[in-house]
């Protein structure tokens, strides 16, 4: 591939999902990340109990991400042919797991009454 710059990558992703959907997804991801960072700063730490509860959702996130990739293509698990394939599949799962954990943690931490410094 020639010149794999950030600009090229953004242009390719815009074409893949359509510019509206792509930037909406980027915005959603950014909002979740910012909110998560806000919660971290507010609480000054990761709240152990909330984190454990959030982590329960990790397998769902992993499966959802892998399912999404399978849904996008005419291929499946049986097509995994080399180490890099397995790596990509695992990476997809990890990304889904981490993503959903962060989302659930943020939501739980924002729910009224769940915030240790509140009252």
């Amino acid at each position: 591939m020639k010149d794999l710059t950030l600009e090229t990558l953004l242009a390719v992703f815009e074409e893949m999902f359509g510019p509206l959907l792509f930037w909406a997804m980027v915005a959603v991801a950014a909002i979740i990340t910012i909110t998560f960072v806000f919660v971290l700063i507010r609480d000054r730490s990761l709240e152990g109990r909330t984190l454990v509860r959030a982590e329960l959702s990790a397998p769902i996130g992993a499966l959802a991400a892998i399912w999404f990739v399978q849904f996008m293509t005419n291929s499946g698990y049986s097509d995994v042919g080399g180490p890099v394939d397995l790596f990509v599949l695992l990476l997809t799962g990890v990304a889904g797991a981490v993503g959903l954990t962060i989302l659930v943690y943020t939501v739980l931490a924002l729910l009224p009454g769940k915030h240790p410094r509140q009252n």
């Binding site: 293509t73 291929s75 097509d79 995994v80 080399g82 890099v84 990509v88």
Partner: peptide, 11 residues
């Protein structure tokens, strides 16, 4: 023969 190379073509 790789799955990722297929994903490149298809997606």
């Amino acid at each position: 023969e790789l799955w990722v190379s297929w994903l490149m073509k298809e997606i």
